[in-house]
Design a protein around this nucleic acid. Structure first.
Length: 636
RNA sequence: GCCAAUGUAGCUCAGUCGGCAGAGCAGCAGUUUCGUAAACUGCAGGUCAGGGGUUCGAUCCCCCUCAUUGGCUCCA
């Protein structure tokens, strides 16, 4: 395990043997440093133990394991506070999570925001009291009885599920005892906890909607006040960038109650959407794709062939017309399969890359809808690639390159995940093996890092997912490359090989944006509304200082428009400061101001977004600059 | 779908312990002609999400519906 030392350097660390044994016994799941553990039968602060070791200087809580112990101890403190205030509350689980922790409770009445304040206050009392935290173990039957006596039915269920003979540990602070694998800090006030209760939410017991819904309290927790503040500032920053807020302000899209989950795209939004589509076509044409368009509505027979009618029906919009069942497409694939089948294909044609910007509709659960990120109708930038088995690796590489090129255009960082065969799957083990191997080799040969998610693939084939990282560190799964063993079978796709025999092609689905609507949502947040020039709904705005300049200003706008630039005039009789404020709020990248001086000199005073000082230039200079920045899709 | 909260003017939000509904911004009409992030005056704008109930009277209390928001993956 690696330890971060006081001087910031990282070094390998073998825990002292006496600590090591217990250390891993206490926190088998962490596998990394904890802040507290057992040493010679006693709970100790491991950091002290480590500091005592001549070779080791410090184990910082920047180490994830350490932070986990903090957060988990904080969750116990919260549980204790809740038990004090609501003695009837039953405890479920309370793990540490990214940036904080939560605890699930079964309470008669759901918590209110007022309760949160009270709980937080009580937690602070517990921290101030600085209770010792001690650990004890019980055999399974006694552990069950212990929790039964306390009426903690959820804990009893948890213990029941633990394997026979396993060590069942409890942590106790003051009069509060909780079943827990640890690790924890030594005292409830070992360090002043920097926490803040964030929200109340319903959550099913063990995540299953068949179970009772419990009340979950989410909280954030850090070691240092500055870290907590930083995290809260980040949440606020994310809120400012929220695409739902900016989408409304910048008139990009609208969500109306007449169509929950069906976004309306407004003129500004359509400029962005069309610019993305133009770009998409440019990139795909260059990469040898052809484009098709398949119908939105198709009959039941097709969806039975594809399997959607039996497996996906509850998410599809269906209707009966002339006594025949129809469904609105939730995916483009079945139509794409039919398009391939329209004529016989020779091996010489493969690979065939058929792209489709397909509008799909899915009946998502009402509670899952979220702005443009989770909608019920969206455009997938889909493509199906039909190929020979020996073409898999190269084609995967081509797709990886293409998606990489697309993401770089927006300045996105991303990471890759490879998902392998799940337990329930179709296709022969041999097919899975060769195709998973092809995906791996493609990634390895490109020298790419990736995470492997064993058993996380689709039932019909392995896949590579692209997870975008936006500028405030959140990740979004967008691109995906999926092999599919199912549809070519179901649709009996064929090609004629060099042997004159019929063979089944290998097929992949892939998307780069994923959903154009969602991608726009991500772009809004990534750029905080300040889109690159090529996507900006208004690229240049011409502002007049007095009415005397209106005529010249109109000429300027006309010549910018003639150069293919999206330009607008603001010749209202308002003060220049006011007009500039509005143009800036609209995130217009080039603001040209025209007063008597500019009319006389036949030039412009231009403010470029993100630059402090304005510059003088001619109309031609501005037009050339915008055209260049737009064509190169520069980001600024 | 489930739990909870929310829904008042185009936007952001006050308000009514049940008695004719408010502000700022935006809009419109004037005035102002101004040099880099908010000029001034006036006008207009609402079946208080929709439906039902209780009441002399409901935007407010109760019920239903719709929509929105935070969650429903993190396993003692």
């Amino acid at each position: 395990m690696n330890i971060k030392l006081k001087d910031g350097s990282i070094r390998e660390f073998a825990p002292p043997t006496t600590v090591k044994d217990i250390f891993f016994e206490i926190s088998p799941n962490l596998g990394r440093a904890a802040v507290a553990g057992l040493l010679n039968g006693e709970v100790v602060d491991l950091r002290t133990a480590i500091e005592d070791d001549a070779e080791l200087l410090a184990l910082t809580t920047e180490d994830e394991g350490g932070m986990k112990a903090y957060r988990h101890t904080a969750s116990h403190i919260m549980a204790q506070a809740v038990k004090r205030l609501f003695p009837k509350a039953k405890l479920a689980i309370g793990p540490a999570i990214d940036n904080g922790f939560y605890y699930d409770f079964d309470v008669e009445k759901p918590f209110t925001p007022d309760d949160l304040e009270k709980i937080e206050k009580e937690m602070k009392n517990i921290v101030s009291a600085n209770y010792e935290i001690s650990r004890f173990e019980l055999p399974k039957d006694e552990a069950i009885k212990f929790m039964q006596d306390k009426g903690e039915i959820y804990k009893v269920e948890l213990i029941n599920d633990l394997p026979e003979g396993s060590v069942i540990s409890f942590y106790e602070q003051d009069d509060f005892v909780d079943l827990c694998a640890g690790p924890h800090l030594l005292k409830t006030g070992s360090k002043k906890f920097q926490f803040k209760l964030l929200s109340i939410a319903g959550a099913y017991w063990r995540g299953s909607e068949d179970n009772k819904m419990l009340q979950r309290i989410y909280a954030t927790c850090f070691e240092k006040k500055e870290e907590l503040d930083k995290y809260i500032t980040r949440l606020e920053e994310a809120k400012k960038r929220d695409h739902r807020k900016l989408g409304k302000e910048l008139e990009i899209f609208a969500l109306l109650e007449q169509g929950a989950g069906f976004p309306f795209f407004l003129p500004n939004g359509m400029i962005i959407k069309n610019a993305l589509i133009d770009y998409w076509r440019e990139v795909h044409t260059k990469a040898g794709y052809v484009e098709i368009s398949t119908p939105i509505i198709l009959n039941r027979e097709l969806w039975e062939t594809s399997g959607h009618w039996s497996y996906y029906k509850e998410n599809m919009y269906t209707t009966v017309i002339d006594e025949e069942d129809y469904a609105v497409k939730p995916m483009n694939c079945p139509g794409g399969m039919l398009a391939y089948k329209i004529k016989p294909h020779s091996y010489k044609e493969l690979p065939i890359k058929m792209g489709e910007l397909g509008l799909v509709h899915r009946h998502e659960m009402s509670g899952a809808l979220h702005g443009l990120m989770r909608v019920r109708s969206f455009t997938q930038d889909d493509a199906h690639i039909f190929m020979l088995p020996e073409q898999i690796k190269d084609e995967i590489k081509n797709v990886i390159h293409l998606i990489d090129e697309v993401y770089k255009t927006f300045g996105f960082q991303y990471h890759l995940e490879l998902s392998t065969r799940p337990e329930k799957s179709i296709g022969s083990l041999e097919d899975w093996e060769t195709s998973t191997q092809a995906l791996k080799e493609a990634l390895d040969e490109e020298g790419l890092d990736y995470v492997i998610n064993e058993g996380d693939g689709a039932f019909y084939g392995p896949k590579i997912d692209f997870h975008l990282e936006d500028c405030i560190g959140r990740t979004w799964q967008c691109g995906t490359i999926q092999l599919d063993f199912q549809l070519p079978e179901r649709f009996e796709l064929e090609y004629i090989g060099s042997d004159g025999q019929k063979h089944r092609p290998i097929m992949i689905h892939r998307v780069a944006f994923g959903s154009i609507e969602r991608f726009i949502g991500i772009l809004i947040e990534h750029f905080a509304g300040s889109f690159p020039v090529w996507l900006s709904p208004v690229q240049a705005k011409v502002l007049t200082i007095t009415d005397r300049c209106n005529e010249y200003a109109s000429e300027v706008v006309e010549s910018l428009k003639a150069a293919g630039i999206r330009a607008e005039i603001d010749d209202r009789s308002e003060k220049i400061g006011f007009k500039i404020r509005e143009a800036r709020n609209q995130r217009v990248p080039y603001i040209a101001v025209i007063g008597d001086m500019e009319v006389e000199n036949k030039n412009l005073n231009v403010r470029i977004r993100g630059q402090k000082d304005s510059v003088s230039m001619t109309i031609d200079e501005l037009a050339r600059k915008i055209t260049l920045v737009s064509e190169t899709r520069e980001i600024f």
